[in-house]
Design a protein around this nucleic acid. Structure first.
Lengths: 224, 224
DNA sequence: ACAATAGTGTCTCTTAGACAATATCGA
DNA sequence: TCGATATTGTCTAAGAGACACTATTGT
């Protein structure tokens, strides 16, 4: 029986100009050397405790980013997706703020909009699409999008992030009411978003108890 | 680099006496020979087109069941879960009616309640728990539970299945109203559930267009 | 007729969205 | 003061649950 090639790939997503972007890197080796592709690599059985560990290691090594949110996405497999042979790729997706990308990402990391992506090697396009679909789906009923923002943020900004991810407007009153009920963010007393010619927005942060886990919403966000 | 062991495992779930059961088989080979375990096996790179294909093949070969619903669950991995070495198991879960089990399952298939399971080898307990959690979660907002029933069923029966899976009562009026809106089942004209000392229930079937895909509910089922 | 469960009508309560009033900043 | 955006109050509409009534079977 031919051995199976085992790799991990990571879809690192961020928001720039209210558009979802994915982090890509130029491949140094064959196959597809020189092509922009997802950060990925082989599982290292001597050092990785599991594939999540491998994904964390690969992401840090290739992009310089240590993501607070890294979730297993799906496993892609088959004889044709990799020219080297029958392969399995356990894929993960991560969310990060644009600010962290700017501060910590290796200079060769390239951001590309997730819409209209093309020319990706392997089945990386399908992987990115699955990651975006998962993010969209989870965003309708969880606090997931806060990971696309920096430590502190205003509610209008958070709402804009939800709207950008979901691709539709959200009723302002409902949004704030829901955020209130969810009790997942707390105001940073005395901190405001200043500098603009209008009433400054209160800055919030994710509550400590939600930093590790997601907050789940029983009723989805609706358009409005 | 040591090679990674690549397998698939399948959690086949069914409902018996309104309790979720999982199909287990006694292992014929080491490791854990003689122990009840999930049906699983190696990926066959010569014949499997992908891991979904492998899961379908393994399930049919080991249990005799060809499930209409088979979804990728999660990939489990690590150096310790299998004594043979660093391994990756791509897991799937399937739903089937008790009637199909009775008709088609190999005689050595054993059903066990998913609650209070113990003594499973590898990390099979964690895999079963993940499958049950996924089923519960998806059942709150989709037509998934219909796969636990036979071809035709009454609405009260379908409601009982939802209640068994979700573990809480559902308001009868709301349930029927929602089923009506969803438009995913249709009455079988002239077919009733007979034999009991009460008004016979209309029999329904899943509409053709939902046999391949799930019907998604925008608002979750609520207790009541 | 009675017991038992199927199926429906309807009232009330909760929740979401529309609309608009008020608050607070820089220019 | 004006323009702009934050924040809040409140009315209205839609959806969910409670309750009870009608329907239909076997005994």
């Amino acid at each position: 029986m031919t051995p199976v090639i085992c790799t991990v790939d990571v879809v690192l997503l961020t928001l720039r100009d209210d558009q979802l972007h994915v982090a890509l890197l130029r491949r140094e080796r064959e196959p597809f050397a020189g092509t922009l592709a997802l950060p990925g690599g082989y599982i290292h059985t001597e050092e990785d405790r599991d594939t999540q560990d491998a994904a964390t290691r690969v992401l840090l090594a290739k992009t310089g980013i240590r993501s607070p949110y890294l979730e297993q996405l799906q496993t892609f497999s088959g004889p044709a997706r990799d020219p080297r042979g029958w392969s399995v790729s356990v894929t993960y997706y991560a969310l990060i703020s644009e600010e962290v990308i700017a501060r910590a990402a290796h200079p060769d990391v390239q951001l590309r909009t997730v819409d209209g992506l093309k020319g990706l090697p392997f089945d990386h396009l399908a992987i990115v699409e699955a990651a975006v679909a998962r993010l969209r789906s989870k965003s309708t009923y969880s606090s997931l999008p806060v990971y696309l923002l920096d430590e502190s943020f205003s509610l209008p900004r958070l709402q804009a992030v939800y709207e950008a991810v979901l691709g539709e407007p959200i009723n302002k009153v409902s949004f704030r009411r829901k955020m209130n009920e969810l009790d997942m963010v707390e105001p940073i007393v005395g901190a405001f978003e200043e500098g603009k010619a209008n009433r400054p927005a209160q800055l919030y942060r994710l509550k400590q108890e939600f930093k590790a886990s997601l907050s789940l919403i029983d009723r989805a966000f609706n358009a409005g």
